[in-house]
Simulated scan of single mutants.
Amino acid sequence: MTKSSKLVAAKKGRILLVRRRRDKLWMFPGGRKQDGESERKCLHREIREELPKLKLGELKLWKEVKGKNRETGRRMSDAIFVAKKASGPLKIGDKKEIDKVAWRKPRGIRLTATSRYIRDKLFPK
């Protein structure tokens, strides 16, 4: 059972990322599932909360990832969805959690552990 869902959107060699306010780490947008919520519904809700103006095309489940963070010991369980298209203004909805959003090159930025894993698998050097 996955605990959260993440969105991967790419265009023109850049990936869509949000930056967490609390630790300034960049990550793929998404978040935790609520009780009784599917992974796909979770992702749609989280995107509406975090990036309310973003319009998504077709979503395809890429992979369900389960693992353990080597640094913290925290278990992760994510459903990773890839959007064929993403457009619209990058307006932040949840400013308590997120302080920046941008289309960024996948390298040279500080990412969360899960986001590093996704980047390395989908956007290898």
Rank of each mutant, 00 (worst) to 15 (best):
E46F: 09
L43M: 01
R110E: 04
S4N: 08
T114Q: 14
T72W: 03
L59D: 01
I80M: 10
L61A: 07
K95E: 09
V8T: 01
R74K: 14
A102M: 13
H44S: 14
W62H: 15
K41V: 13
R40G: 01
L7Y: 08
E37C: 07
I47M: 05
I80D: 01
T2L: 07
D120L: 07
S38H: 00
E50P: 08
W103Q: 09
D78V: 13
K33W: 10
K41F: 15
R110N: 03
K3E: 15
L61G: 05
D23M: 02
I92N: 02
E49I: 15
K121R: 12
D35T: 15
Q34A: 11
D94K: 07
I118F: 06
I80L: 07
G88I: 06
F123R: 06
P29L: 03
F123I: 04
V8P: 02
E37A: 02
R20H: 13
W26V: 01
R21C: 14
N69P: 06
R75K: 14
R74F: 11
L56V: 05
E46H: 10
E39H: 08
P106D: 02
S77G: 08
R104E: 08
S87T: 00
K105V: 05
D99E: 00
K12I: 13
L16V: 03
D120M: 07
K53C: 09
K11H: 10
L25H: 03
